[in-house]
Design a binder for these strands. Structure first.
Lengths: 221, 221
DNA sequence: TATACGATTACGGTTTCCCATAAAAAAAGG
DNA sequence: CCTTTTTTTATGGGAAACCGTAATCGTATA
């Protein structure tokens, strides 16, 4: 049963609506935060007071606005929250639709539900909360498809490192030295070239510029 | 005086809040649409019925969801709306924060106000509506700064063409032929190289990959 | 220890890109 | 109409990237 819920959402306009939705579900014990740090503090304090939250509804992107924060986005909040309260249910409510991000949430962060901000998000939120109350994960079908589609090519950490360096202006021939300095295993120039060719081949690309553009679209870099 | 307002916003959660905000401003004559096409129809019909809207509050991104639409985003809606009702006040309410996009809204689409979805967006919306009622444009200071900052380098159509081609995988040496086929004036390879150098120089870059990444971030391509 | 195998790295030739300079063309000015 | 200036285009040498192949390293196995 879900009775105590925390909303972490920096958009006031959305925050208001989520509160209203919880009211309609007869969940009266709610709290809300506009910053990740505030949210984490509330979670920690609730744990200490033996009245921990049953559910965290959080956005992913939190715009910086001058207030210095330890946690800068929803991903970090999720990690930190799980540390202070491992059994906390987490529902991500966001406009983010880049497959690489959602895939991470599902497979790495192991969140309990995902609701995209969209035309029927109010109804979807209610469904999601009800599902999570029944200990089931909530991921709409079209979201699952999105995750699968991105698996056209699954970028490894090594892939991302190389493309990021290129996008930052490093010469290909200088990458090996950088990899060695950071203790990254395959560091030969040939290995870098091979990886780039693998990626381009898998995606039907011919130039590094395409890889950079594609990763930007996916949100991988 | 603003008495009749149309909300075009596909996120139900946001749409609800905006309606509530208008209520608080004692604006009771409101309508809302989840699709651009619907919004345009409502505007056109109101004009025909001699009861046109005073203000359109619109988002920019409208997610496609199967329903085939003529207008696919807020930019197109704005253009179409201005055709059927040139004096319509337009307030853009969006999470979009790419400078190139906001710059276009301000200088090309000539909208009356811009409110970013953020921590105090409910209050900002009220301020914006009040300002517009007084026939003043509403653009928060930090938004103006954002527009100016992007003017570190102002991409021309030619610039964008070249970078887009690179991001699509075209070899640099093949670009001149493409430019000629499309009747674009400077088409020599040297001209392409010169432009690329100008851009990289202005932005402190050394590689084309950086340009592609930067333009993706800006929303220029 | 020897050997086989996969992964990584090194090397050489070709293509593309980069950059400076010069020629040609177009525009501006007298 | 000619000169001056600017813009565009052409050319060539050198650097980087591309690509196939060979050498090397590391590990597992007999």
């Amino acid at each position: 049963m879900i009775t105590k819920v925390l909303i972490a959402e920096d958009h006031q306009s959305v925050n208001i609506s989520v509160q209203k939705i919880l009211e309609e579900l007869a969940i009266m014990n709610t709290a809300y935060a506009y910053y990740c740090d505030d949210a984490l503090n509330m979670i920690a304090q609730a744990v200490r007071a033996n009245s921990s939250f049953d559910l965290l509804i959080t956005d992913l992107s939190f715009l910086p606005d001058g207030h210095k924060q330890v946690l800068s986005d929803g991903m970090e909040l999720i990690t930190a929250a799980r540390e202070v309260q491992p059994d906390l249910n987490i529902l991500v409510f966001t406009a983010e639709n880049r497959p690489a991000i959602i895939d991470q949430l599902y497979n790495k962060y192991d969140i309990d539900g995902f609701v995209p901000k969209a035309r029927n998000d109010a109804r979807a939120l209610k469904e999601a909360i009800n599902e999570i109350a029944l200990h089931r994960r909530y991921f709409p079908r079209h979201i699952r498809q999105l995750i699968d589609k991105k698996n056209a090519y699954s970028f490894s950490e090594f892939d991302i490192t190389i493309i990021t360096l290129l996008a930052q202006g490093m010469l290909q021939k200088d990458i090996p030295a950088h990899l060695q300095r950071n203790g990254i295993k395959p560091s030969g120039l040939s290995s870098v070239e091979k990886k780039l060719n693998q990626m381009k081949d898998a995606l039907g690309f011919t130039k590094n510029e395409q890889l950079v553009a594609h990763c930007k679209d996916l949100g991988a870099i």
